[in-house]
């Protein structure tokens, strides 16, 4: 019995992303396609999302022209593929404040947003540092924080201090401080509703980019595989590895239950389809009675 359906929805992509960005130490190993995605969780009379992407109006042209980000589509278009409208979304979990995760809150007018308190506080701190340390505030749009002011006024922003159980029934938030960002978090769906779930799904945000972050090559140390952290982090790779271990524990050490949203090869593990817009919808699981959105 499954309470929730989960889909990973691609809304844009970078055709050639340097592999060392997704995999620590993978220098001079070429490029990988990097899809930009958010996650939709539907069930128990809720429609929730993990992250909301970015809004093309603000800097889409710049991203396209300079960094090769392609094929951005609005949430209205992307979510219609699974029969959801942005106005239907009641809850959003922001895994971290980077522009491609927190950059489109205005398209979800009825949602309540959850973010780690530390993610806000540490960006404030980073912005107070001398200019020579500006690297520490990279990829954060002050505009997203400004929009957060309105959300807070409207009581649609909830800051979380660490872990939070049952934020929706069977859905938990977990913090990974000083890892990919200062206040990153991941979302765990206990899809049978049980405390010790036999059907957990871990939605990793950017704590895991690709499968190799969990099952990296371990032959050099006589192991089948080892954790290899994400390359891009303002915190530490140590904290990324520790978070990965915790996520894997929650997933019963079943790697395929930890979902990396920037992973192009989710299609090899889960049913999926390419939409008319050239973007992929990947179906992680279906709630009881929910028809598939990727198969005829």
């Amino acid at each position: 019995m499954s309470d929730y359906s989960i889909w990973v929805c691609e809304y844009s992509f970078v055709a050639k992303y340097h592999k060392s960005g997704v995999l620590y130490g993978a220098h001079n190993q070429g490029y990988v396609k990097l899809p930009y995605c958010y996650v939709v969780i539907k069930g128990k009379d809720h429609i929730a999302m993990v992250d909301v992407g970015y809004n093309d109006k603000a800097y889409g042209k710049h991203l396209g022209d300079k960094f090769g980000v392609e094929n951005w589509r609005s949430p209205k278009v992307v979510l219609s593929e699974i029969g959801v409208a942005p106005e239907d979304v009641d809850t959003v979990f922001i895994t971290h404040a980077h522009f491609d995760h927190f950059g489109n809150v205005e398209d979800f007018p009825k949602a309540k947003f959850y973010i780690q308190e530390r993610e806000i506080a540490k960006w404030v701190w980073a912005m107070s540092l001398p200019d020579r340390m500006r690297w520490m505030m990279v990829a954060v749009d002050p505009g997203d924080i400004v929009r957060g002011v309105d959300l807070a006024r409207d009581r649609r922003l909830v800051t979380v201090g660490g872990s939070l159980t049952d934020v929706l029934p069977g859905i938990d938030l977990h913090a990974a401080f000083d890892s990919h960002t200062y206040g990153s978090m991941w979302v765990t769906v206990r899809n049978d509703g049980k405390t010790e779930s036999a059907d957990p799904w871990v939605l990793a945000g950017d704590l895991v980019y690709v499968f190799e972050n969990i099952k990296g090559p371990g032959s050099a140390v006589d192991l089948d595989d080892i954790y290899v952290p994400v390359g891009l982090a303002v915190g530490s790779q140590t904290n990324l590895v520790l978070a990965t271990e915790e996520m894997m524990k929650q997933a019963g050490h079943d790697a395929h239950r930890v979902i990396p949203i920037h992973e192009e090869r989710l299609r090899d593990t889960f049913p999926s389809r390419i939409t008319a817009e050239g973007l992929r919808i990947t179906e992680i699981c279906l709630a009881d009675g929910e028809p598939s959105k990727v198969s005829a």
């Binding site: 490029y31 990097l34 710049h62 300079k66 990279v138 749009d141 505009g143 950017d206």
Partner: peptide, 17 residues
């Protein structure tokens, strides 16, 4: 004069067009 510093962001390693 850029509102967001993308220099190390998730998109920044691709080919510079």
């Amino acid at each position: 004069l850029a509102m967001v510093d993308f220099s190390h962001a998730c998109c920044s390693c691709g080919p510079q067009h």
